[in-house]
Design a protein around this nucleic acid. Structure first.
Length: 590
RNA sequence: GCCCGCGUAGUUCAACGGAUAGAACAAAAGUUUCCUAAACUUUAGAUCUAGGUUCGAUUCCUAGCGUGGGUACCA
């Protein structure tokens, strides 16, 4: 029986005896740092059922609990807050419980429903940029968190490998490519293809200008420019399975995938399953047909199929064009259903997609619910804000994007500069050092992005925004490295339990550690890596304060030394676990 | 126009409806005879406005202002 259960029933009994009321669920919260105590009961919440002075009620309740619950040694009442103080013995015992459990905070996989987490979802016509970095980090981290909280997880991406935009870069390659390859140019495949996409746009604009000068209206020129016409023609050939086009398409896409692999690896993300739009873009039409028969959808005179969501406060939405071809929505309906067929244990899905598509997913989920799928209640759009630059929005055509590979390289370079100035790494090999710079640089980048609430937009200043001091990844990594150094110097056995009185700072660290499992559960429920990040930062702050004020090796009490090393080790373990959920690696030294 | 986010110190971020709204950066002062000063300790500084619900509101509701996004056959 956990202390929460004991407290719960003891409090209920007390309320019954003292005030003759029964309260089903008494809420407990950990006491704030500035007040004495470990767990707090908010007496105010009883006032509806118990009339009287909150302080008096709290005092009576506190006296009863102190009397009847062995672990409670004292209490105090501030306004309507009853703060309960636990014994050192109890805190030590719970600490040893977590100290000795290897998977502290993590649950066994318990839920039989798996969750499919989709993220990244790139187009194969250009390299990944800063926006993808936020997407990837969020998606990966949320997947890890959900898994840690006890669900089986499948990570997936849907690769947008077809369509007019792909044909544009293919056409530019055909026309201006001179048979270049990643090998011949030394460029990453995604970069090479991205260049052709830009090239297309440039040539297309030039052509439009020429047409306008020769007397054509701009609108007409945009439609009649030969480059665009050719690209559309190429798309038709692709759809018809034309051998030459498909061969080129396969070759160029493979270059891009090879390039993406490098970027994903550097980011530290991975996928269990890939879906390709070229395989899924025709899905969903049969479902629409069924929905039409059952009256969920309706047909307009021109033959297009719609759903009426005005009763739900939304609009009408098209699900099939007049010519019978699919739209984005059709495809997404079909893909979702396909996934549950491919992986029958999937009972929910998370879509990591920017907030400009909030409306789309609202409608998608509603349609799937109306179609009667029982998993439709467990769909979640992990919506995140844009990453803006000081100059404004990123525009790939205008070249104001921050390239993912470049940014990661820059972070590593900054980490190298700072580390070399501090110069603490003698005895490290050159390659170990380089690896360390990478760990620190990526830690800074990942933490900077993940500590922010996903819903909020991020203002990203490449020059100034990545810091290595304060509330940052490297600050936390540094604490971890110091702890490892501490453990290396501890030349005594600290594996066994000891019974000492706890100092105030030690109590604070123990209390913070105890919250970790709850934080994981909450983060999974809210799909929020930011909660983990901020929790870890708080833990480090509390630990640093402890570290500074309590002499660890100088104590003449050996048992105290043992306990302090144990405490430090556990803090290190928890930091490592928490940052693991954020995809951030830990340095042994720095 | 309509719909959906967001609005907290000078700046970047926190705060299950709970106590005196927390940090960091920037500014000012201090701490290195045990373990890594990328640290620690002080000082100064904020909830867009007006109502409402509540014992209690940064949080929930209404209206307004500011800001970003979406707006029906593009994905």
């Amino acid at each position: 029986m956990t202390i929460q259960n004991i407290l719960q029933s003891a409090t209920q009994t007390a309320l019954q005896k003292l005030f003759d009321v029964s309260i089903e669920n008494v809420e407990f919260q950990t006491t704030r740092k500035d007040f004495e105590g470990d767990i707090t009961i908010v007496v105010f919440s009883f006032l509806r059922q118990i009339k009287g002075n909150p302080v008096e009620i709290g005092t009576k309740l506190g006296e009863y609990l102190k009397e009847n619950v062995a672990e409670i040694t004292n209490f105090n009442v501030v306004k309507g807050f009853l703060n309960l103080v636990f014994s050192d013995a109890y805190l030590r015992d719970t600490f040893y419980q977590v100290f000795n459990s290897s998977n502290f905070g993590f649950k066994e996989v318990v839920s039989k429903d798996a969750v499919m987490v989709e993220y990244s979802s790139p187009n194969t016509n250009k390299p990944l940029h800063l926006g993808h970095i936020r997407n990837n980090l969020l998606g990966y981290s949320v997947a890890e968190i959900i898994e840690a909280a006890g669900n089986k997880v499948y990570k997936t991406q849907i690769i947008n490998d077809r369509g007019i935009h792909i044909c544009k870069s293919m056409l530019a390659y055909q026309k201006f490519g001179k048979n270049e390859t990643p090998e011949s140019t030394g460029l990453k495949g995604d970069k090479l293809i991205g260049n052709y996409y830009v090239k297309f746009d440039k040539e297309y604009k030039t052509e439009i200008q020429k047409l306008v000068i020769s007397g054509m209206s701009e609108d007409e020129a945009k439609k009649k420019a030969s480059l665009l016409v050719d690209a559309q023609e190429m798309l038709k050939k692709w759809e018809a399975g034309d051998t030459e086009v498909v061969t080129l398409w396969k070759k160029m896409n493979q270059w891009v995938y090879d390039g993406f692999d490098v970027t994903y690896k550097a980011l530290g993300v991975n996928f269990d399953i890939n879906y390709f739009e070229s395989n899924t873009y025709l899905l969903g039409k049969d479902i629409v047909q069924k929905g039409l028969e059952s009256g969920i959808f309706f047909k307009k005179e021109d033959g297009s199929v719609w759903i009426d969501l005005t009763a739900e406060g939304l609009d009408e939405k098209i699900v099939l064009r007049a010519d019978g071809t699919a739209v984005y929505m059709t495809q997404d309906i079909g893909t979702a259903i396909q996934r549950t067929k491919d992986y029958p244990d999937v009972g929910g899905m998370v879509y990591t997609v920017g907030n400009e598509q909030d409306y789309h997913f609202k409608v998608l989920f509603l349609i799937l619910k109306k179609l009667g799928f029982d998993w439709a209640d467990n769909l979640y759009h992990l919506s995140y804000g844009m990453v803006d630059l000081p100059e404004g929005k990123m525009k790939s055509r205008e070249g104001t994007v921050v390239d993912a590979d470049d940014l990661m390289q820059e972070m590593t370079d900054t980490a190298r500069t700072i580390s070399q100035e501090l110069g603490k790494l003698e005895g490290y090999s050159a390659s170990d050092k380089e690896n360390l710079y990478r760990i620190i640089g990526m830690g800074a980048l990942k933490y900077y992005i993940l500590k922010v609430d996903p819903k909020k937009r991020i203002l990203f200043d490449p020059k100034e925004s990545i810091d290595f001091n304060g509330n940052t990844g490297p600050f936390i990594q540094y604490t971890y490295a110091r702890i490892q150094s501490l453990l290396r110097k501890a030349d005594f056995d600290y594996s066994k339990g000891v019974a000492i009185d706890l100092h105030q700072k030690e109590r604070e660290v123990v209390k913070q550690l105890q919250d970790f499992p709850d934080v994981i559960q909450l983060a999974a429920k809210n799909h929020s890596p930011a909660l983990i990040a901020n929790y870890t930062y708080d833990l480090v702050k509390v630990f640093n304060s402890f570290y500074q004020s309590v002499p660890i090796f100088a104590s003449d009490n050996h048992e105290e030394k043992i306990f302090r090393i144990q405490l430090s080790k556990k803090v290190g373990d928890v930091i490592q676990s928490a940052f693991g959920l954020l995809g951030i690696e830990m340095p042994e030294r720095m």
